Simulated assay, not measured.
Amino acid sequence: MRKPRGIILASVGLLWAAGMLWSSRYSITSQADAEIEVTSTAYAMPGAVSAMLVAGAAAALAVLTLVTGAGRAVSTTVRFVITTGVGLIIGGLGAVSIITINTDGWIYAVVGGTVAAAATIGGALAGFQQARVIAAVCWAAIAVFLVGVVLAFLQDDLLPVFGAGESAASQADAAAYWGYAQGLLGGLVAGLITFRLLRRAVKRDGTVLRWPFYALAGGGPGLLLVIGEVLTRTAGARVLDLAGRVSVLDTSIQQMLSTTRLNNALMVLFVGAFTAMVAFGRTLGTPADEDPAPVRRPQRALVPPKRQEDPDEIEQAARAD
């Protein structure tokens, strides 16, 4: 991965994370009621965790590119130390923006710790040898996020297409179909973008990249979403549990949102990997049909043509005898 591309990716990833953290902080601090503030924190945490995963990986790749520039080689241990350290720094900065909302409450410390863990894990993932694959995953993850934003903006207009009516049952079914469609579209976008980026990198560098790396890159954004959901349910479990205690309705909403996020992540994972593999398979040229070997016929011995004798010569030979 070249330096300008690495810096651009890191800038975009950090801007995305900063925007998500600012949005989370604003939605939390703008609530006057303590119970609504807790539920707002639970709603905002998954998005911030996913953004910090990408930001940690993107920033770590940029720093690693700068360190290993000019042909300098580093060992695997040094690579992971650099990338994990960068992720830890990014995570610490993100955690500070959440913890400072209220330093007296443990809920923000939990969210801050979850955010810091996400960035650290993202940085550690950037330590693997295939930097091109990690960079493609980060770009695709940002694209999947943008797809989600656009679909969320169009949700009210498109839900009737999926059968949403006046009844609560039809609206619930339509929301489920909507989640499947969002995961399917996100997976297609992830697979196509990662395939395109890897093909360009391979052509530019002249190297060979086998199909498992394309599959891994295509499913990478979904894998990041799965990791983010696991972090949300483990490191941030106390926040979700507290938000679920506000009311029975909030408990149902939290469970529904957790299930929807996991299903969406799995769909992006599998659809993205499958799409990237299919796109890669279409580039494999079929071997040209070989022309059948020409049949060699046995050559006949060349017999010199019989010499036609002249009648005058025959008459002269007879007279001579």
Rank of each mutant, 00 (worst) to 15 (best):
A126C: 04
S11M: 15
D291G: 06
G179I: 09
A135I: 09
V63L: 14
R282S: 10
I8D: 04
R210S: 12
R319P: 04
T207L: 13
L14N: 03
S170P: 06
D104F: 11
A48N: 03
S167I: 05
F270Q: 03
G285H: 14
A301M: 06
D310H: 11
R79S: 09
Y214D: 01
E37S: 14
T77N: 07
P212A: 05
I121R: 04
L21M: 05
Q255Y: 09
Q255P: 02
G187C: 07
T41I: 08
G69A: 15
A276G: 09
A215S: 07
I36A: 11
G13E: 00
T120V: 03
G285W: 15
I7C: 06
F80Y: 14
W139P: 00
E35R: 12
A32I: 08
A119V: 03
G285E: 15
L231G: 01
R319E: 13
T120G: 00
V147R: 02
L21K: 00
V295Y: 09
A18L: 14
T68K: 13
A320P: 05
W106F: 15
G71R: 03
T41L: 15
V67N: 02
T84E: 03
S252D: 12
V38L: 14
G218V: 06
E290A: 15
V137E: 01
V295I: 15
I121Y: 12
D321H: 13
